[in-house]
Design a protein around this nucleic acid. Sequence first.
DNA 1: ACAGTTTCCCGTAAATGC
DNA 2: TGCATTTACGGGAAACTG
Lengths: 409, 409
Amino acid sequence: EKQPCMPTHLQKPLIIKTGVQFTTKVRLLVKLPEVDYQLKVKTTFDKDLPPGRVSRQFFILTNNTKVMDIEDYSNGCLSVEFRHLLSGVCGVVCIWQGLLSVTEELHSLSFEACFTVQGLTIDLETCSLPLVVISNVSQLPGGWASVMWYNLLTDEPRNLAFFGNPPRANWSQLSEVLSWQFSTFAGRGLNKEQLAMLGEKLFGQHASCSDYQVSWSKFSKENIPGKPFSFWMWLDSILELIKKHLLPVWNENYIMGFVSKEMERALLKDKEAGTFLLRFSESHLGGITFTWVEYSENGDAKFNSVEPYTKNRLSALPFADIIRDYKVISDGVVPENPLKFLYPNIPKDEAFGRLYNSQPSKGKRTSLPNASTTPPSCQSPQPPMTPGEFDVLCFDLSDVSLHESNGPN
Amino acid sequence: EKQPCMPTHLQKPLIIKTGVQFTTKVRLLVKLPEVDYQLKVKTTFDKDLPPGRVSRQFFILTNNTKVMDIEDYSNGCLSVEFRHLLSGVCGVVCIWQGLLSVTEELHSLSFEACFTVQGLTIDLETCSLPLVVISNVSQLPGGWASVMWYNLLTDEPRNLAFFGNPPRANWSQLSEVLSWQFSTFAGRGLNKEQLAMLGEKLFGQHASCSDYQVSWSKFSKENIPGKPFSFWMWLDSILELIKKHLLPVWNENYIMGFVSKEMERALLKDKEAGTFLLRFSESHLGGITFTWVEYSENGDAKFNSVEPYTKNRLSALPFADIIRDYKVISDGVVPENPLKFLYPNIPKDEAFGRLYNSQPSKGKRTSLPNASTTPPSCQSPQPPMTPGEFDVLCFDLSDVSLHESNGPN
DNA sequence: ACAGTTTCCCGTAAATGC
DNA sequence: TGCATTTACGGGAAACTG
């Protein structure tokens, strides 16, 4: 008389890290006026996966059974909350082994509930949406890629074999999802030009063809030609950089970002001397640089850039201050900041003025390279949500929700 | 017939962190030609402390009993090695509570061994030197202070009540120990002048009186007047800074370090313009700065310093490069590096030339504040040992040694 | 040897306890 | 409430493992 209940409102699979606590919440949505009932819930990890289906086996370390108290009755429904820890691996041979990476391996949590009311006992069962299990935050971007692909390309609530043969995505769909990543986690999505530049990076010059298809492999498994990282690893490293060090500048839409070096020259050519734009490094993960144009005596355009700033350098000095204080020094010449106009033609201080964090390094006597600036204060204008943040997923045991007790980032 | 064996050669107490593995090694030094013997050892934490003597109770999480195999016979003696994890607190009321901090609370490991040879059974027992248990590396400096004080002031092998009434130290003894910290962990000890400056910091102007006494409280418990940290916390923060960011410069003896602002002026006065010296911040933990002298038209000496560089800024650019690239900029004036001679009169590049890590920022076209420099490479010229590093302590069970499986830093 | 994965643990931040 | 102490976990690096 077990009654498997399928989830009612789907959201997305989630990421769990071994050794880090997470919380599950099971709710029985049925409203009952009586109080002489009891709800007993048991949580199991990967309960009835056929053996040999997964390569790794995990265990819930904490108590996995809980009885609801009368006091737990709140919000008009019965609910039981667990706090779990997932333990490490216990290697199980697997038919997929070698083909799937850990972040492509989908797991699930099962909840078996025993609901007793007036002598009547009802067994209920439900399970979570697919879960990705990682052991280190370094696997989080890979896990998040899986989450995105799953959500984008299937409505199945529990297709744990999804990555055995993952479908392709249309660029029109995928680009929307990518933009959504930026708007959710960095406060501003990607504009049409930025998406076109990303498409170009994936497809070459056919960029604007919005019905191109992207394979899972091309998106996050195989490396970009000539680079030691995949498209998504690169894009995610940029997202992380923005979240931690570039939020204000990003939100003002001052970062063109994904422009190629060729495009960059085409854009800056014929602009006023000192016009510059901000772009992310294409060769290194999580770097940002600026390029400006100058003209020699005979009128030839000359393009200059700096070595990309990475999180290390940005945590010593905020990016807006770097732009303000940047100087080109030649021996015996008065130093000058070559950055005059943010592309296309916004005077630098007009654009960045409000974003400067510290005293300008142009007092009577100031010093470079490390003027007396305040330490970087990178306050996020919104709660720190990240791809690793566990969203709440609700479905019915009635209603099970799972979220991490503390965000992984 | 238990035979308590006291340690034979003492070293010093050690620091253990909960949740971090440590290894103990018990050796039976007796040499026996026979092979039909067995050694069984059991480890217990705080075995026979009278209840109420300690405020915190800990447990060894892993298997605490081990039998030696014949194969373990090596190095000419029987030895059994444990790998332990210490679990958290289990609050026990304590007669010292409120008086002693966690790093003053001394614990011990007991080893009970059962040695069987040709039907004869001998019970042996020994225990470790005092141990400090911490739960976070932030407590490591405090723990290390205890270790130093204990070693300096008692020869008792197991005086767990030592910090109930710790003796004072003579400055002559203490200064030797402090110098030894620097020579052990930073590769170069403290010279006479540096020790005199430290003495002055502790005693005021009576500095040179080498028979002054320092109380434990003054050394590491009470704050320096007007500062929110104790003498040892301050000194240890400097040691950490050197270890991580200043090793080459420190080892060349280029950091005067502990000079007060008053002394500094006296030293620089009348030196050639551009003479500078390096000193640690007195007001902030783990900071280093430089001060240089200039002369105005009428010959008055003028002293300038920069805001101290902390680990954050130093990890973005190595200190030698900071000195090389430092420029004072005034509007409309050619920038200049005011640092010319390292006190007393060593030309800057002669002193620091070999220590520059990156391309100098004085090419035809270079930039500040973040010229194209390589990321900081702070390679320690010696194995990374720190106050937290667990030393080996040997005594006899015959012979028990304990060391951490991985250095804490 | 090597790449993917896990373990280890410091160091910061938050939570907890007294 | 504030301070001392512990817990939590991200992040870099080492260790592991097929």
